[in-house]
Design a protein around this nucleic acid. Structure first.
Lengths: 376, 376
DNA sequence: TTGTATGCGTTATCAA
DNA sequence: TTGATAACGCATACAA
């Protein structure tokens, strides 16, 4: 890196002015063919690569869009992250005895969202910069990210409100995947409620189920809450009794769901009333996410309860593991890639028309009917 | 976005010079406490966010590291990518009859690499910018990426050699996951050869296998080639006959592997010789990647061939699906997150000492012994 | 079609 | 401890 060549170097070598060099790159049609050739030659000989910083400064636009995610690694401070250990060239041989399959929901989810965003950004000639709001320096990191981009897509809850308000004064912000909210930002949300509603409609109408229970998620999850509302909508529409609260709440993890399932199973087996299977499990368990449903499936299968024969089970999210379970899980798949694409799309239209009123795009979901609800 | 405030605005409001504003942000200790407070107040009132472009220009360093990947979406041109279709709020209900599970190896792989890179970058106060080398404008996109970062980590084969040479004159480049190569770049490679060697050593030593075959990958895959070398190393060390070529070659996809497996199976069943299972399948199939092994597993299981009883099967990569198969697949897991971390690490040391000789870091892999090789 | 000159918003050097 | 002021590398309005 001897010192990167600049427009001046190229101009000198090509025997033209710096303006011409710039033009060759930005508006080739305004330059005589011969000149263009000479300049390109100089560029190639010198190994010239334009400085993005200088360009962004002069053009008042960086051509970069930002993506801000919450931390999913459970790493909060620099100290939490051990220095990488390299065992040299040693190959470790490990007897893998199994155990719970690693839950990589978040990784996959975010990865897909990024993929969609990158795709749409590429399509429109933008670059993408990613940032994770984590740690104590979170504010600074988010701030710097905002300073480097033309627009910022933020995953709901990943940035504190006041910080978000601050950076939103500099760049357009779109919030991804939160509940539709009435603030100053553009929103891109996923139709949790309608998705659950459609799923439960199916259970009631096509499978004739009437004894359904909802397994909720964490209290502070707006997604889980909306899904529960969709559940209630369906019951109400069918004239069934509508519960005020979920029958139980999971923590959205597979392991947590297993514990919950065991507890419920024990209570029912020892307990009150009988159902088709000799105990009072509901005929259908509508779970607020896939991990929860899979955890239940683990326990039910282990206990000899047939799914969907004895208990119908459904999830939400559409993670890969739902295709691999036995039976495969009926679920509602989230448009993860679309989420990223839509965010970038919204950002672009906001950039094009800064004065338009804040918009909310509600992305449709897809109900995937598989074996766990009794569909072939 | 009324027009973002600048240092001048902040300085005026705080009644100080722009130099002081800059200092408050970069070297707070050089500023009197009282002054600091005043400036911070002005910053907050004005909603000031420093311009990354201006900063990068003045400081001659952007604080951003770049990550360049090959396209994995099969999208080559803008026209290949349909405009996103929003069905409004309609929820689509789909009967999912199954079929091959979508192969998302690349996505997951790249996602993990990014995760590692982001983590390490965050740790050291850098931002990460991603770029996919795809389409006709690939050269321009890569060029622009290079112009915006302090260093660039490139996935092997994602950028043409001449282009790479060009941008390497401006920013340090590290090549990820290619074969160790003797060029001017820093490399971070995965120990494909030693990993396969260790795996096959295990099959021979611990399971007493002597009739092993290697299912290769595409001709142009250096990874597949190295793994084959590791296979040969192990056979040679055990005094077994060493083949010059893989017994067969898959295209690294599960579907392709299935076809291949069917062909092989047919040939053997109708054919020459007999083995423990009544036909001449080798006792062990060492596959060059997981998808290939899983495709074989599909077909073998379907044909009633017991794995590992009749045929031992192994893969390479360590994708999630290998934990879900029955039996679970013995494989060699790639250090994907580590790959990203190491790349950023290398970039940093290169930035710190531009004159150091090009280095190659060989990342160790982990052999995961599971049921498909006969381990409990 | 090309060149000149100015400004973009910071950082950093040097004085004060 | 603070303030002037000169880069930084490019885009662009205006002249030629």
């Amino acid at each position: 890196m001897a010192k990167a060549p600049t427009v001046y170097d190229v101009a000198q070598r090509a025997g033209v002015s710096i303006a011409t060099v710039s033009r060759v790159l930005r508006r080739p049609d305004d330059v005589r063919e011969r000149t263009r050739t000479v300049v390109h030659e100089a560029i190639r000989e010198l190994g010239y690569v334009p400085s993005g910083a200088a360009r962004g400064l002069a053009a008042r636009s960086t051509g970069v869009l930002g993506l801000c995610f919450p931390d999913v690694d459970g790493i909060d401070e620099v100290d939490d992250l051990p220095d990488p250990v390299r065992v040299g060239e040693a190959v470790e041989v490990v007897r893998d005895v199994g155990g719970p399959v690693t839950a990589r929901w978040s990784n996959l989810y975010l990865g897909e969202v990024m993929r969609g965003a990158e795709l749409e950004a590429w399509r429109t000639g933008h670059a993408v910069m990613i940032g994770v709001a984590r740690g104590l320096r979170r504010a600074q990191a988010v701030n710097e990210l905002a300073g480097r981009v033309d627009g910022l897509a933020v995953l709901s809850k990943s940035v504190p409100d006041d910080l978000l308000a601050h950076i939103a004064r500099r760049v357009p912000v779109v919030v991804m995947a939160g509940p539709p909210q009435d603030d100053a930002y553009d929103h891109i949300s996923v139709d949790n409620r309608a998705g659950t509603r459609a799923l439960v409609d199916h259970l009631i109408a096509d499978h004739g189920l009437r004894d359904l229970a909802f397994v909720g998620g964490p209290f502070d999850s707006p997604d889980a809450h909306e899904r529960f509302q969709g559940f209630r909508d369906a019951l109400a529409a069918a004239g069934l009794e509508v519960p005020d609260e979920p029958a139980a709440r999971s923590d959205f993890t597979r392991a947590g769901a297993r514990d919950l399932a065991r507890t419920m199973l024990a209570a029912h087996v020892t307990g009150r009333g009988t159902g088709p299977t000799g105990h009072a499990l509901p005929r259908a368990l509508v779970c607020s996410n896939d991990q929860t449903a899979l955890g239940f499936l683990d326990v039910l299968t282990e206990a000899g309860v047939d799914v969907p024969g004895d208990v119908v089970l459904t999830g939400f999210d559409g993670i890969d593991a739902t295709q691999a379970s036995i039976p495969r899980l009926t679920t509602v798949s989230q448009p993860m890639v679309e989420l990223g694409r839509a965010a970038v799309e919204l950002l672009r239209s906001r950039l094009a028309d800064p004065s338009a009123p804040a918009a909310t795009v509600n992305l449709p979901v897809r109900v995937l009917l598989r074996e766990s609800c009794g569909c072939a």
